[in-house]
Simulated scan of single mutants.
Amino acid sequence: MSLPAGRQPLPVLQQRVRIVSRALARHGLVGAWGHCSARIDENRFLVCAAKPMGQIGSHDDGVIVNVDQPLPEGVLGEVRIHQRIYARRQDVGGICRVMPPITMALSTLKRVPKPRHGVGAFIADCQFWDDPRLLRDDSLADELAIEIANEDALVMRGNGAVTVGGSIEEAMCKAWCLEDAARIERYVSDLSDDLSQSLLSKDEVLARQVSSGRVFERLWEYLTAGDPEPLDESLAFPSESEVWL
């Protein structure tokens, strides 16, 4: 039995953060900008190296950050978003700050993807942050953490998105689901002027929010396929009982 995700040895956590970083870049969810992190314990988390995530190599370790202390030297300013979310959400074990292009395009119209297909059900309550500024001060980061509330995704107007999960792997999967929902949103908008008819009902959303049957495990395998630093299979994707708590 592997250790819970947030209690694994630091070298294992470093590896997981590197693999997620490269996967996000490989699938176009980040470019020059973006970052991800995994919680270590109640007061600390590990954020990826401050460089384009697709260029993070096997020796590019992340930096340990305290939830309630100033950011360490060399850590990107928007990592304070992670600080504020971890401080407010004890259920969160991983965070991804991403720049998915279709989601970004919708956000400039003050729109977020709606649940119109099965994958979209996983981000059905996506929140919207109506402010294009970078979040480089504590007060703005606090406001964003309040806005995301207990949901798994928040879209920032013209400025990407934030997804969270019980583990960094789950947060990455939610980022992919968000962009896939945005892709469907774009296609549906091209096909019809009446977008209400394609929405999933609340009951349909609940019925589709099922992750059993290796739903996220398969998505993890798809997103990380070809990574140069394969993770031990026993640690490949934390089960529900192995999230950081």
Rank of each mutant, 00 (worst) to 15 (best):
G166A: 02
L24N: 05
D130K: 05
S167I: 05
A105W: 03
L10W: 03
P100V: 12
R39S: 05
G160M: 10
W244H: 07
L109V: 02
V20T: 06
D193M: 06
L195T: 09
P101Y: 01
Q69P: 00
G77E: 15
Y86P: 08
A182P: 08
I146W: 05
D125Y: 04
R208Y: 08
E147D: 04
N66K: 04
N159K: 09
G226A: 04
H35F: 11
W244K: 00
P9N: 06
Q83T: 01
G226N: 06
P230D: 08
E169Q: 14
I123G: 05
L24Q: 09
V17E: 03
G120E: 02
A225W: 09
R111T: 04
E143T: 08
Y86Q: 13
Y86S: 00
E185L: 02
L219Y: 05
W33A: 10
K51H: 08
V30L: 05
V188R: 00
N159I: 04
L200M: 15
I123H: 02
L191Y: 11
P70D: 07
I81A: 14
R80N: 13
I148E: 14
A32G: 15
W129I: 00
S37F: 00
W129Y: 15
D232E: 13
A225T: 03
F216H: 10
R26I: 02
D142L: 06
A181P: 15
D194Y: 06
L144T: 07
A175Q: 04
R16A: 00
A124R: 12
P132E: 05
G77P: 14
D60F: 06
V164T: 13
R183A: 11
E221N: 09
H59Q: 11
D232W: 08
D232I: 04
V17L: 00
H82P: 01
L106H: 15
F216R: 13
W220E: 13
L24V: 06
T224E: 10
V67E: 13
